[in-house]
Design a protein around this nucleic acid. Sequence first.
RNA 1: GCCCCGAUGGUGUAGUGGCCUAUCAUGCAGCCCUGUCGAGGCUGCGACCCGGGUUCAAAUCCCGGUCGGGGCGCCA
Length: 481
Amino acid sequence: MKSLRRPLCFMVGRDSTDWLPTAFRTHTLGDIAISGSDLVGHEVTVAGHAEISRGRGGVCFLTLRDGTGRLQAFLKKDALDEDIFLSIQSISRESTVQITGNVAEKRPPKVPEGEPIPPPEYEIFATSAQILSEAQTPLPVGITDKVHVELDTRLDNRHLDLRRSHINAMFQLRSKVLSYGREHLLKEGFQEINTPKIIASASEGGTNLFAMTYFETPAFLSQSPQLYKQLAILGGLERVFEIGPAFRAEEHDTYRHLNEFISFDIEMAWADDEDVMGVQERMIHHIWSQVATRDQNLIDIINEYRISQEMEAIAVIVPNLPFPRVSYDDAIEIIQSKGGEIEWGDDISASDADLIAEEHPGFHFIPRWPMEMKPFYIYHNKDEKGATGEQLSRGFDLNYGRDEMTSGGQREHRVDFLEQNLRDMGLNPEDFSFYTDGFRFGAAPHAGWGLGVARLLMVLTGAGNVREVVLFPRDRSRVTP
RNA sequence: GCCCCGAUGGUGUAGUGGCCUAUCAUGCAGCCCUGUCGAGGCUGCGACCCGGGUUCAAAUCCCGGUCGGGGCGCCA
């Protein structure tokens, strides 16, 4: 690991080498940090936030940061307008500045005896400068401070929190994860869809919905794209996925729940639960291996912060395929053998999941749940019975350690079973006719899953709370910012 | 929704009835330093969540409120 004495101030988190110039800059800071050797002697214009201004008298070292990286500007009193020099010498942190100057190699820092001299870094020797916007002092949360800041304070000031390098890196990773996931699904023939988020009635039952008024009609925010993605499959779209919001009016308050979250859903025709578990593990494997080979710089930035806070560094360990399958029957057995108090037919609680995680710390599927614990749209084979003779379903979960990432399954495509399941769960099939009608004219057997994007990100980034990896999280007590 | 815990400068903290005119770090302001880079040195600034109560005396104890944290349930 890199020495803490030399934080990687100029670490680059984003490849911006092919970004086009804009009205405010010819190059990004990250670009110059990477391509500095080709740019030495060239005049460039850059813009960014003033991270710190050091030096007095006739010199000033201004560390600038934009969304791509950091770079030092070197200002000499006799090389530019004196008033501007003085105002930048005493500029407040986070003010935005535009600098024009020539790229030069930095003088190497003094290093303690015996330590290697670091590779060359680059700076801009300023010939002109302009303050674009001054920052008030003090900042409500420090961008480069070493002091810990609580999540609640950070979320109240998310616009500043996002400027912190490791937070920026986490959100870049979020974008990468979605992009690699899309990339994989498109390769397997899936097409991206969007389903309505304003709905007339419960789409699954179970959780509470947020009520709203749709002109003169009562309506709800969708808790899941479930029924609509199935209708897309029944309509012959073969393989679909959606990355979109889901809303649940549950008053839960944990590190892994939000009332608005992004669900990554797929649905696949002519497939059973095993088929879509395959899609999922291949997709996750693709995401992990892409991040491991292409985005180690982002992981490094996160680790730089974690180490400074005396937290354990994270590593992207590409999981082996296939993921272990721990059937519900097996899970009950494992929990019981470890002294957990659980009976067949009980839900697997968090402390039970801890016991399973002792044997399967990484990704693992838990297939074949009892039918009575699964929603009405989950399929069952009549002759598949659990350890106590109860009906099993083709529903599954994907867990990482103790945390549930996904729930999915083969869907019930036989309309008479579907209606019976609804009745068994105390629901009226007539209320679901918009859905069940889709099954009356020849239905393709199909399967799918829904994955919590923030939960997956939590695993990848080492975040201890889904709120960390959601830009503006919505929980029981937070609706702003 | 249930159970536990907490609230002190901008931020993060120390504090267990009188040693509190409240600790430390960071920040902010000012001064010194013409190659800094975890910059350094010096001088300042800035806080006990709100309302009630107990007590000679409350940051500290009690009650209520508000806000927050952890765990659980439920789920993704």
